[in-house]
Amino acid sequence: MIEISGLTKNFGGTPVLNRIDLSVAPGERIVVIGPSGTGKSTLLRCLNFLDRPDAGTIRLNGMTVDAAKATKAEILAVRRRTAFVFQNYALFANKTARQNITEALVTVQKRPRAEAEARADEILREIGLAEKAGSYPAALSGGQQQRVGIGRAMALDAELMLFDEPTSALDPEWVGEVLDLMRKVAQARQTMLIVTHEMQFAREIADRVIFMEGGRIVEQGPPSQIFDAPQDARTRDFLRRVG
């Protein structure tokens, strides 16, 4: 069980996250939607301490962290139990596809290199890029880079996988293959928190959809409720605008 309570973040005095409460059950797949600038990315980044929350607690299966006062060790512990997939892929530019996957297993998790490499090869097959193992990110298409980005996150065996608009930076031709891979991850009942504008995808794989606006959770529920019978006027308004 992952429990977030009172998570708050201000940028220059402006509240961007306003006392967010959220519980995530093991294996639950949550999609976060909402207009631009409402704090969706900030929520994910605060959960991984890429942005430092101003208040709130993060409880990750038994470990409770006071987000504002988190120590270096606590921050590392949280990061080691979560995985992050970035909008712009953010693959290590000086590492091959395979090394991108093994890097954290060896450096952070201290697993033997041979074991890490075996795991990477397994993942490369799963993401359909076994033949690109030795390629550097610069030589991969956007879709391939993002598949490696997801593979790198998969390898960590994290308790929670965070996706920040993983298909938004992609040319339309590559969106399908990345969504297919995410479906595969979802089918394995990986706990996921996904920010996306892909409504059809959300409807398909989400156990719960969260609509955020102005740094707050306005409405949440199963996709059928949020998409077909939204209760809040702001949700209806947003869905009408994104079509």
Binding site: L50, R80, A83, F84, F86, E103, R152
Partner: peptide, 8 residues
């Protein structure tokens, strides 16, 4: 950010 995110 990617380095931090994987826990380095």
């Amino acid at each position: 950010e990617a380095s931090q995110a994987v826990g380095m």
